[in-house]
Amino acid sequence: MNELDRAAELLRGADALLVCAGAGMGVDSGLPDFRGPEGFWRAYPPYRALGLRFEELADPVHFADDPELAWGFYGHRLDLYRSTVPHDGFGVLLAWARRWPARVFTSNVDGQFHRAGFAADVVAECHGSIHHLQCLDNCGQPVWPADGVSARVDPVTMRAAAPLPSCPACGGLARPNILMFGDLSWDPARTQAQLDSHTRWLRSLRAEGRRLTVVEIGAGTAVPTVRRQAELASASSGALVRINLHEPEVRHGRGAEIAARAAEALRALDERLH
């Protein structure tokens, strides 16, 4: 039995489905792959000239020290994600979610699962969402949607021009409600509510004795949050389908390892299920 057949068998035996998605999920939609400095600089050449890596730009300190630099980076990404059409692999997952009770756990901040048609109450975004904002000064304003908010970004310098997004309560600077590197000021309220709902769902499945199959897609080991969630959720059943072009190995020796990109693998699995 090859890995695709094994994965299809695990799906057929499922009572419920958990999709765990990392950055590799968005590559087939045309979103950039930030694997290492070279991958990031191919997507954003101006930052190569400045010698700035993704980890250095995704630092909340810039919103206080150089807000034009910070909003240049995040404003460009906000526009990019708004204009990106989810690839057909999202449609496969959405169809599966109509067949099985399903949830999504993702580190992606791009909102692609919502854009593809997944209901907000079945998606847990563990690193937050670029489509929501928070007050930089923590004035007490709850996290709010970024609908209608944008930043004008110079494509050469990648710096944003005034006026920058602001807090509707105090008028101070706004920032994306994203967990950045070394982020001590992130407002976790929205994400924590999602995670609490996610945990209750998993507990209910265990209490009812329902078999959960986990489909992990494009989740790397550099920031292993999604892989750990997938491994923990599938620990009792071993029903883990890992789709990863570069790192498909399943350490516990069970499950299915599919070394392919997201859309290709999901289409092939869907064909086998039908």
Rank of each mutant, 00 (worst) to 15 (best):
R99L: 12
T221K: 13
A124W: 04
D65Y: 10
R175P: 03
L273A: 08
T157D: 09
A64D: 05
M25P: 01
F90Y: 15
G182S: 05
G75W: 00
A260Q: 05
A151T: 02
R272Q: 03
A102C: 07
H114D: 06
R228L: 10
V85K: 14
P32I: 04
Q141G: 08
S204F: 01
R190Y: 12
A64F: 14
E216K: 00
A23S: 15
R35P: 01
L4W: 07
R12G: 05
P168W: 08
Y47L: 03
L212P: 03
D196N: 05
D79C: 08
H131E: 13
L269T: 12
L173M: 05
Y74P: 03
R103S: 04
G218P: 02
C126Q: 10
E247L: 06
S237N: 04
P32L: 02
P37G: 07
C20K: 04
R82I: 09
F73I: 01
P163F: 05
G148I: 07
T106K: 09
G26L: 11
G39A: 03
R200N: 04
L133M: 12
A222Y: 07
V226N: 00
S166Q: 15
R203W: 13
T191Q: 11
F118K: 07
R152F: 10
W96F: 09
P176R: 04
H114F: 14
E247K: 12
E3T: 04
A119E: 13
M158R: 05
E247D: 12
R48S: 07
L232F: 13
L57K: 09
R267I: 13
W100G: 08
P155T: 04
F40V: 08
A146N: 01
P67I: 03
P155V: 09
R228D: 09
E9H: 13
G171T: 14
C126F: 06
P165Y: 09
G172F: 06
W144M: 07
A268M: 15
D5T: 14
T84S: 11
V27I: 14
F118M: 10
L240E: 01
E208Y: 02
N2L: 08
R251V: 13
V123R: 01
H274M: 11
C167G: 12
A64H: 11
V85Y: 10
L52Y: 14
V109I: 11
E271T: 15
H132E: 15
P46Q: 03
A262R: 00
G13E: 03
A124Y: 06
A8I: 06
P248M: 03
A207E: 09
T225A: 08
D154T: 10
V104I: 13
P37A: 10
G51R: 13
G148N: 08
L245S: 06
L11A: 07
L266S: 04
Y74E: 06
D15E: 15
L94V: 04
S150L: 14
D15A: 08
L57H: 05
S204T: 12
E68R: 06
V104K: 11
F113L: 11
A102L: 14
A14P: 04
D121K: 12
G89Q: 05
C135K: 00
P163I: 08
G91H: 02
A189T: 15
L80Y: 01
L69W: 02
G75H: 00
A161L: 13
I258F: 08
A119Y: 05
R12P: 00
S29W: 00
S129R: 02
A268C: 09
V85D: 03
H114W: 14
R254M: 01
L10M: 15
S107L: 02
